[in-house]
Write a protein that binds this DNA or RNA. Structure first.
Length: 437
RNA sequence: GCCGCAGUAGCUCAGUUGGUCAGAGCGUACGGCUGUUAACCGUAAGGCCGUCGGUUCGAAUCCGUCCUGCGGCGCCA
């Protein structure tokens, strides 16, 4: 069929009312009677109802009636405003070209999450997944624009790595020629090397963790958006992190309102959070809040557990940054904050927690500059210092104050889209029990 | 690593104390219906009741094993 094809979004507007239009896409729904056939056509931009009557298109009527869901078609017709049509406009078909007649599509209504995930290669066509993936694209695009506008350079770390970073037990082993190495858990060690060249860097890249976590907040393969910068302390990094997340929210609210509405994501909740200051509290203050408002007694020095984070966040409607966790429970590279008002030594570190039970979306810290205390911390954790020889070199040649953090892209998307499960925030989730499709 | 839940038609699920319990809806095929909103009405096809074993005259149902998936904790983003 000859003609200039328009997106469904374009055609769903007063601009095309009364005019002929060509559209192409996939059949989303069909309904028919003896006299009328209704085809709801889907393309990447939306859906439009297309109608034909036996009287008007006798040659095409039976063809239209036989089409199964997800068949690909090109359609020609006249656009007419009609309140009965979803979206307000419908196409009165005058031409139908069947590009490919689909077999019976396995996904219908009333699907279990398990079945949908088994068929994610097909479920990805759904309006819901379409909306989530559009938000995801905006989120990663916004991360790039945020840092680039501020003079950061994108820096790409290796994915194969010989080193652990966050503890050896959660690494995926990979056969590498005649030896065994690991998939990266964090770009951090390499980022710390790179800031001596580029000073301010960021990335968005995949991360692999073999944690045996079977929760709605964990993936074995997820994407982290990280930053690392020289000459800044961890409180500077907190400010940047808050600005980054606000920047992302702003972009999504700007570009994905329809998607958020379709997902039932209550975008107003996000917009409100942009107008207010986001709290920064210390770990010690968090314990006070838990004790006073949640009736939870946490012993100082214990890391906050999931239930405690959830209960703490019930007191807030915006993300909250918790700083200065006990040094004891933190990774070796996080330095001590001297002179903090706390019962024990605390680290120059922070976590940003999202409201609504979405958990930690960002973790970050200042990095220890001193080779002596780094070595001591590694030994305390039972690591072999030799494995970190090149990392320790970074403290031998012009060591400077620097800080960085990592943002969990899927957790942020889950919060923005109000998803029940993080597995829907990534196109093809990898978990403890799923690597297909 | 610990604790829990679930596997019956392509899909979502019923199935009582073990004894017409092989069932419904959706989807599909065929037919009907003058505008439907994942319409409606009729007919039909479609099942090793996850696996292996046990108890029993008799097992979808009770017991055990294994497999698969899901969720919670811990840990993390």
């Amino acid at each position: 069929m000859d003609g200039e094809y328009r997106s469904v979004r374009e055609v769903q507007s007063s601009e095309f009312d009364g005019r002929e239009a060509f559209v192409r896409g996939w059949i989303h729904r069909t309904r028919s009677s003896n006299k009328y056939v209704f085809i709801v056509l889907r393309d990447s931009t939306g859906i439009i109802q297309c109608v034909g009557s036996r009287e008007d298109i006798p040659d095409l009527f039976d063809i239209a009636k036989e089409l199964l869901v997800e068949s690909s078609v090109r359609l020609k017709g006249k656009v007419k405003k009609d309140d009965r049509a979803p979206g307000g406009y419908e196409l009165h078909m005058t031409g139908i070209e069947v590009v490919h007649a689909a077999e019976r599509f396995p996904i219908t209504k009333d699907q279990s999450e398990e079945f949908l995930r088994d068929n994610k290669h097909l479920w990805i066509r759904s309006r819901r997944m379409n909306a989530i993936l559009k938000v995801r694209s905006t989120v990663t695009g916004a991360i790039h624009s945020f840092f680039r506008e501020r003079g950061y350079h994108e820096f790409t770390p290796p994915i194969f790595t010989p080193n652990a970073c966050e503890g050896g037990s959660t690494l995926f082993e990979v056969k590498y020629y005649d030896s065994t190495i690991f998939l990266t858990q964090s770009w951090q060690l390499y980022a710390e090397a790179a800031i001596f060249s580029l000073e301010r860097i960021y990335d968005v890249s995949p991360t692999f963790r073999a944690e045996r976590s079977k929760t709605s907040r964990h993936l074995s393969e997820f994407w982290m958006a990280e930053m690392e910068a020289a000459w800044i302390g961890y409180l500077d990094a907190v400010r940047i992190a808050q600005d980054e997340v606000k920047h992302i929210l702003g972009r999504v609210l700007n570009e994905n309102m329809e998607d958020l509405e379709l997902l039932g994501a209550e975008p107003e909740r996000l917009r409100k959070s942009l107008d207010v200051e986001w709290p920064v509290i210390t770990y010690t203050e968090a314990l006070d809040i838990l004790k006073e408002k949640c009736n939870m007694d946490v012993e100082w020095g214990k890391d906050l557990r999931t239930i405690e984070e959830e209960r703490l966040m019930e007191n807030f409607s915006t993300p909250v940054t918790v700083i200065q966790y006990p040094k004891e429970v933190m990774a070796f590279y996080k330095p001590v904050e001297e002179g903090a008002d706390a019962p024990g030594p605390v680290a120059k570190c922070f976590d940003m927690l999202a409201p609504g039970g979405y958990g930690e979306i960002i973790g970050g810290s200042e990095r220890d500059m001193d080779i002596g205390s780094l070595k001591a911390a590694l030994e305390r954790e039972g690591e072999s210092v030799e494995n970190y020889d090149w990392y320790l070199d970074l403290r031998r040649y012009g060591s400077v104050q620097h800080s960085g953090y990592g943002l969990g892209v899927e957790r942020l998307i889950a919060w923005i889209c109000k998803l029940d499960n993080i597995k829907d925030a990534i196109p093809f989730p990898r978990t403890l029990n799923r690597v297909r499709p």
